[in-house]
Simulated scan of single mutants.
Amino acid sequence: MVILNKLLAQIFIPKFFSTMSLESSKRVAAYKAVDEWVKPNTAIGIGSGSTVIYAVERLKQRVVNENIKVFCVPTSFQARQLIISNGLILSDLEAHPELDCAIDGADEADANLTLIKGGGGCLLQEKVVASCAQSLIIVADYTKDSTKLGQQYRKGIPIEVVPMAYVPVKRKIEGLFGGSVNLRMSVAKAGPCVTDNGNFLLDWQFPTDADSDWAAVNRDILMIPGVVESGLFVNMVRKAYFGLADGNVTERC
């Protein structure tokens, strides 16, 4: 029995503490960003993803404790439900076309704070909201902080396309840039993953052995007919907060 308990501890305890450390790192990054960037009586963009949950958690605390008013513009259905469930003021870009800041996550950030976003399928609305904000603030854990794109995030760059064009777009991207492009399939239903906007998602697994000019790559992708938006966020980030496992936060501008 003693031997069995030791074996179980070796299997489960490290995994438990690793998970807790990762979640803690997300929380400290999100809390610090909200404390430093959210001001009373402003409109802010609320991104999507697991780290943004903690940003909304902290925002709710500030609204309650400081009695401040903040108008929240969501980037997805998930973000909208998060705002509503926390009792925050839901708004949109019609009422608030100019935002003080947008707080969002990322799948990966390189040394220049070029981002890969869209792993959760919300890249189009995320980019629209980010473009309306004076400052795009990124919150993430330490596993998203890379020197080069593709160093840690292996699923590729998401690209949102109109359904009828996914095959031509796939072929053109592979012909222009190399790598492989795959249609993202749904997990809980048969068929492709469909975005909040009714489009398909392609995931481009790009060659990682060369230094790419991501601004030029992004422009070229967006010029392909049928492409709605890419998951490359280039020269958009004002500041990024990466939570560390030890409770500290790395900040990059």
Rank of each mutant, 00 (worst) to 15 (best):
Gln134Ser: 15
Ser131Phe: 03
Leu115Pro: 14
Leu124Asp: 01
Ala111Thr: 09
Ala140Ile: 08
Gly120Glu: 14
Leu124Thr: 13
Ile116Tyr: 14
Gly105Lys: 02
Gly120Trp: 08
Lys117Gly: 06
Ser131Val: 07
Gly119Leu: 11
Lys144Arg: 11
Leu136Met: 14
Cys122Lys: 08
Leu124Arg: 13
Ala106Arg: 00
Cys122Arg: 05
Val128Cys: 02
Ile138Thr: 04
Ser131Arg: 13
Asp107Phe: 12
Val129Met: 02
Gln134Ile: 02
Gln134Pro: 00
Leu124Lys: 10
Ile116Met: 15
Ala140Val: 06
Thr114Ser: 13
Gly119Ile: 08
Leu124Trp: 09
Leu124Met: 13
Ile138Ser: 00
Glu126Asn: 08
Gly121Val: 10
Gly119Asp: 12
Ile137Cys: 03
Gly119Phe: 05
Cys122Asn: 15
Cys122Val: 11
Ile138Met: 01
Val129Lys: 05
Thr143Tyr: 00
Leu115Thr: 07
Ala130Ser: 15
Ile137Thr: 03
Gly120Thr: 08
Asp110Leu: 12
Gly121Leu: 10
Val128Tyr: 02
Gly119Tyr: 08
Val129Tyr: 02
Asp141Leu: 02
Asp107Trp: 06
Val129Asp: 03
Ala130Glu: 13
Val139Glu: 05
Ala130Lys: 01
Leu115Gln: 14
Cys122Pro: 14
Val139Trp: 04
Thr114Lys: 09
Lys127Gln: 07
Lys117Gln: 07
Thr114Met: 05
Lys144Cys: 02
Ala109Gly: 12
Glu126Tyr: 11
Gly119Asn: 10
Tyr142Arg: 03
Ser131Thr: 07
Gln125Gly: 01
